[in-house]
């Protein structure tokens, strides 16, 4: 079975904008790949259709079927990792090899505060349309509004 791995040099996963992230990628594949890439990307999650954006790619030259390589990448200025009521922005690394269907992922947080940005209302349940709430309250459910 193919194995790919991303190991970060630091023991934390939270990084500041512009900070350097270093680590090692390793793989053990049944067949020697032509290409192995490490992607830095962000993607969205939540109510809306997904958006994703590749920010940086590191290509490892002359990869063997079993190998280990160091990497270091400087993170961009943004966007910050974010977790709101409708939209989440998630950063991560992805290691892929063209000879394998497997991939390795490592999620990180990019933020000036060391934590994903979370607005105060992020944990509120979506209230829904006022008329729907009113109907729900007639049947003893939902968050009735005054």
């Amino acid at each position: 079975m193919d194995e790919l791995k991303i190991e970060l040099a630091s023991d934390h996963r939270e990084f500041f904008p512009g900070e350097e992230v270093a680590g090692t990628v390793s793989w053990r594949l049944g067949k020697a790949p032509r290409e192995v890439h490490l992607h830095l990307l962000w993607y969205t999650q939540g109510k809306g259709d997904r958006d994703a954006q590749l920010i940086r790619t590191v290509e490892f030259q002359h990869p063997a079927s079993e190998d280990s390589r160091p990497f270091h990448i400087y993170l961009p200025r943004g966007p910050y990792s974010f977790s709101g009521r409708l939209v989440s922005i998630i950063w991560g690394f992805e290691l892929i090899a063209n000879s394998s269907k497997e991939a390795a992922n490592e999620e990180i947080v990019l933020s000036p505060t060391g934590k994903e940005v979370r607005p105060p209302n992020a944990d509120e349940q979506e209230a829904g349309h006022p008329l729907v709430q009113k109907i729900k309250s007639w049947f003893g459910g939902g968050n009735a509004r005054a």
Partner: peptide, 15 residues
């Protein structure tokens, strides 16, 4: 958290 592989090809940028 659903981190499925997003990109299966390489962009330019040789590191």
């Amino acid at each position: 958290k659903d981190f499925s592989p997003v990109f299966k090809g390489s962009e330019q940028d040789r590191g």
